[in-house]
């Protein structure tokens, strides 16, 4: 029984990690007022970049760096379109997703069916991993898990307690007043989109070099979209993002737990998507105006206009 609990809890955290990484990125991006619907595509790019680079260099860390870099690079498209050209952010984000899925499948074609010799191994933290039960769950994990937790804390601290965080948040709330303070709104938004893209790329790397050690087309399986829902669930707060991401990790794991009961795998596969809708309904039942969404989320900002 104890083994089962440990194993389920471990796998919950493993499944939740890429969701958490992606959500932190989207929270940062949306806090600056930019809705980025490109996460699914950027994640896919990150997954393929990490796989290919690791495949040739045999170095998982280089693979991770490549994924972050690739995620940032492809996100420039969204930055140019939504910030510089004040385009519709919904359409531009969708375009980014399509482009990301297309490019990743073209780039990954030669690597379908190949596998890495090793994936990112779990690291046991000395002493802490000796704590009964909890030690095995929390402190015998992939480096991605530790990084995700640290990044979530860092993002929370930066957004809530530093001057940079105030700049980012005020850019999302009132870009005009922010500009009047002498802060470059465009620069902040470009920065946040690129950082968000880096996080999405890292989430993709999580899937291809740690969660598994291969590349298959469509391996992101809608996680990028779940990330966007989780951002709302998290009320744009990286700390709450942790709760949401691991809750969803649990739902992913539940699919496999319930399968032996004879429920159709197709019906079980609906669970994460149903849960996303359910969570949004639950948030929607509360007064949506108190959600604390960045006031200017999705609105293009044009300098010198009212």
């Amino acid at each position: 029984m104890e083994d089962l609990i440990v194993s389920v809890a471990q796998r919950t955290l493993i499944a939740g990690t890429p969701l958490l990484i992606g959500t932190i990125g989207e929270v940062i991006c949306e806090r600056s007022g930019i809705l980025n619907l490109g996460v699914e595509g950027v994640m896919s790019i990150g997954a393929v970049a990490a796989f290919v680079v690791t495949f040739y260099t045999q170095n998982l860390w280089l693979g991770l760096m490549a994924a972050v870099l690739a995620g940032m690079l492809i996100s420039i498209i969204h930055a140019v379109a939504s910030v510089s050209l004040q385009s519709n952010q919904v359409v531009s984000g969708l375009a980014l997703t399509m482009l990301g899925l297309g490019i990743s499948s073209l780039a990954g074609k030669p690597y379908v069916g190949k596998s890495l010799t090793e994936k990112m191994n779990t690291v046991a933290i000395p002493f802490l991993s000796d704590i009964p039960i909890l030690g095995k769950i929390l402190f015998v994990q992939s480096p991605f898990f530790y990084m995700a937790i640290v990044l979530a804390l860092a993002a929370w601290f930066i957004l809530e307690h530093t001057e940079l965080g105030i700049k980012i948040r005020s850019t999302g709330e009132n870009p005009k007043a922010t500009e009047a303070q002498g802060i470059n709104v465009s620069l902040i938004r470009y920065g946040c989109i690129l950082v968000g893209g880096g996080f999405s790329g890292m989430a993709g790397a999580n899937l291809s070099i740690s969660y598994s050690k291969l590349w298959i087309e469509g391996m992101t399986a809608g996680r990028g979209w779940i990330v966007i829902a989780l951002t709302i669930f998290a009320l744009w707060n990286p700390m709450r993002a942790m709760i949401g991401a691991f809750l969803f990790g649990g739902i992913f794991v539940m699919q496999y737990l319930l399968q032996p009961l004879g429920i159709s795998p197709s019906l079980l596969a609906m669970l994460p998507y149903m849960a996303t809708l359910l969570v949004l309904v639950m948030i929607g039942i509360k007064d949506s105006k108190k959600l604390n969404a960045p006031a200017m989320l999705g609105e293009p900002y044009k300098r010198g206009e009212r």
Binding site: V80, S87, N88, L99, S104, S105
Partner: peptide
């Protein structure tokens, strides 16, 4: 999915 490249790129250029 190559066709997605067409879709995505053309959409980007249309909005630009």
């Amino acid at each position: 999915a190559t066709v997605q490249i067409f879709n995505g790129t053309l959409l980007v250029f249309l909005i630009m």
